[in-house]
C-alpha cells in the first residue's frame, strides 16, 4: 500500500475533526510527507478518494504550499529566514556562508541526501536574527559558527 494502514487510520481520525473530511487535508499532507519524504503522485492518488477530491487537485494543493513537496528532498529541511528584519541583521551573508559550508545553494539538496537548503519568507523570529528552521525546530540568534555546529550535528 502506498500509504500504510496506520497512517491512513491517523488521517481518518484527524478528518473526524472537520465538518467535511477535506478540512483534514493539510494535516494528512504533513503526515504523508513526514512519513514518506514527499507527497508523490502515487500518494495523491491514494489520498484523493479519502478527501472526495481528484488526485490532480491534491497535487495542485501541494504545489501551493512552501512546506509541501511532491519531490523527495533531503532528510532535513533547513530554511534561513531572509526577510527584511533578518536581512538587516545580515541574514543574506549568513545564508551564503551556510551555502559555502554545505557546498550547495538554496533550493539544492546535499549530495549525501542529508540536507535540503532553502530560504524562508519570514519565520516570525524577527528580533532574533539571523535564524534558521531545521525541520520543526527554530534556531535563533545564530552566527556562522553556531549554525555550523547545528548543521554538522544533523544525521
Amino acid at each position: 500500500m502506498v500509504i500504510s494502514k496506520a497512517i491512513r487510520d491517523q488521517i481518518e481520525a484527524e478528518n473526524a475533526n472537520y465538518p467535511r473530511a477535506r478540512g483534514g487535508l493539510l494535516a494528512a499532507l504533513h503526515r504523508v510527507q513526514r512519513e514518506y519524504g514527499a507527497i508523490t503522485p502515487e500518494h495523491a492518488t491514494a489520498l484523493a478518494p479519502i478527501f472526495d477530491m481528484t488526485a490532480v487537485e491534491v497535487l495542485a494543493v501541494v504545489s501551493f504550499y512552501d512546506m509541501l513537496s511532491s519531490q523527495p528532498a533531503g532528510r532535513h529541511q533547513v530554511r534561513v529566514c531572509t526577510n527584511l528584519s533578518c536581512s538587516l541583521a545580515g541574514a543574506r551573508e549568513f545564508l551564503r556562508e551556510i551555502e559555502n559550508h554545505l557546498g550547495i545553494t538554496r533550493g539544492e539538496t546535499s549530495a549525501d541526501g542529508r540536507i535540503t537548503l532553502g530560504h524562508e519568507a519570514c519565520l516570525g523570529a524577527c528580533a532574533n536574527a539571523p535564524m534558521m528552521r531545521v525541520d520543526d525546530r527554530y534556531y535563533e540568534d545564530l552566527d556562522t559558527e553556531s549554525a555550523r555546529q547545528v548543521l554538522d550535528a544533523l544525521d
Binding site: Y18, G23, L26, L29, H30, Y65, D66, L68
Partner: peptide
C-alpha cells in the same frame, strides 16, 4: 481543533 498551515 488545532490546524496547521503549510507555508503560505
Amino acid at each position: 481543533v488545532v490546524v496547521r498551515g503549510a507555508g503560505s
